[in-house]
Amino acid sequence: MELQQAGPHDARTAGVCLDLDGGPGCIAVARDVLAAFLRERASHAHHPFHADVVLVASELATNAVRHAGGPFSLELGLLPDGIGIAVRDSSPALPRSRPADGTGGRGWPIVESLARQVSVFSDDDGKTVYVELAW
């Protein structure tokens, strides 16, 4: 999948924005907030969609912690036919697929396969990965 260039802030309708420290437990916090957001704002969407959204957001958050090694932000926004997720971290390095092994390599292909759109905006201060999932 070729990455489209995103604008610096590509979320459509902000619903939740979290600033996370990248420390232990931050990915679980992100999942919990995301699950609550989906229950409250997208209860009409089918259950597999909720699971896909949580999985994609978890993978993006994990990548931010693992590859940027510091604080990151997670923004969720409702779209007319799905959800937008933006993760901003301090590394300008673009995500890339790599062969899966015992240390990883599975997350980015999962994101690419579940999202209908994947865009990355990189600048001197880091990058934003923006994905959309349709219900």
Score class of each variant (00 low, 15 high):
residue 37 F to N: 10
residue 91 S to K: 05
residue 101 D to I: 00
residue 25 G to V: 07
residue 1 M to Y: 11
residue 83 I to P: 01
residue 119 S to W: 02
residue 32 D to P: 04
residue 115 A to D: 05
residue 47 H to C: 08
residue 67 H to I: 03
residue 106 R to V: 13
residue 26 C to T: 08
residue 12 R to Y: 06
residue 66 R to L: 09
residue 58 S to N: 12
residue 35 A to D: 15
residue 64 A to I: 03
residue 130 Y to A: 07
residue 98 R to G: 04
residue 119 S to R: 15
residue 68 A to G: 10
residue 57 A to C: 13
residue 116 R to G: 12
residue 36 A to R: 14
residue 56 V to S: 04
residue 72 F to W: 07
residue 17 C to F: 06
residue 58 S to A: 11
residue 133 L to Q: 01
residue 115 A to T: 02
residue 68 A to D: 06
residue 86 A to W: 04
residue 111 V to T: 00
residue 88 R to K: 10
residue 33 V to M: 05
residue 47 H to I: 10
residue 28 A to S: 15
residue 67 H to W: 05
residue 133 L to W: 01
residue 107 G to K: 01
residue 80 P to R: 12
residue 90 S to Q: 14
residue 103 T to S: 15
residue 113 S to H: 12
residue 5 Q to E: 14
residue 34 L to K: 04
residue 128 T to D: 12
residue 120 V to C: 08
residue 61 A to D: 07
residue 52 D to K: 14
residue 105 G to N: 02
residue 77 G to K: 02
residue 27 I to C: 12
residue 78 L to K: 10
residue 113 S to Q: 14
residue 108 W to E: 08
residue 81 D to M: 09
residue 23 G to N: 10
residue 16 V to S: 06
residue 129 V to M: 00
residue 68 A to T: 05
residue 13 T to N: 15
residue 12 R to F: 08
residue 49 F to E: 11
residue 133 L to S: 01
residue 39 R to C: 04
residue 24 P to E: 14
residue 23 G to C: 07
residue 120 V to F: 02
residue 4 Q to A: 14
residue 115 A to Q: 03
residue 70 G to E: 10
residue 38 L to N: 09
residue 30 A to F: 08
residue 124 D to Y: 04
residue 14 A to R: 15
residue 21 D to K: 08
residue 124 D to S: 11
residue 78 L to Q: 11
residue 120 V to Q: 03
residue 21 D to A: 13
residue 46 H to F: 05
residue 125 D to K: 13
residue 83 I to S: 07
residue 8 P to Y: 13
residue 13 T to R: 14
residue 127 K to G: 02
residue 112 E to S: 05
residue 110 I to N: 09
residue 51 A to S: 14
residue 37 F to E: 13
residue 121 F to Y: 15
residue 50 H to I: 04
residue 20 L to Y: 08
residue 20 L to I: 07
residue 95 P to M: 03
residue 54 V to G: 02
residue 93 A to P: 00
residue 4 Q to W: 10
residue 75 E to R: 11
residue 3 L to N: 05
residue 59 E to W: 01
residue 115 A to P: 01
residue 100 A to V: 12
residue 103 T to D: 12
residue 66 R to A: 12
residue 73 S to M: 04
residue 92 P to N: 07
residue 103 T to V: 12
residue 86 A to V: 11
residue 14 A to H: 10
residue 48 P to Q: 11
residue 29 V to Y: 14
residue 20 L to H: 08
residue 42 A to S: 13
residue 61 A to Q: 05
residue 48 P to F: 06
residue 57 A to H: 05
residue 58 S to W: 02
residue 128 T to P: 01
residue 89 D to F: 00
residue 125 D to E: 15
residue 122 S to C: 03
residue 68 A to V: 06
residue 76 L to N: 03
residue 23 G to Q: 15
residue 63 N to S: 09
residue 127 K to A: 04
residue 21 D to I: 01
residue 19 D to C: 08
residue 69 G to Y: 11
residue 112 E to R: 09
residue 14 A to K: 13
residue 59 E to A: 00
residue 11 A to P: 03
residue 10 D to Q: 14
residue 26 C to L: 03
residue 127 K to S: 08
residue 68 A to K: 01
residue 12 R to H: 12
residue 3 L to W: 09
residue 33 V to S: 04
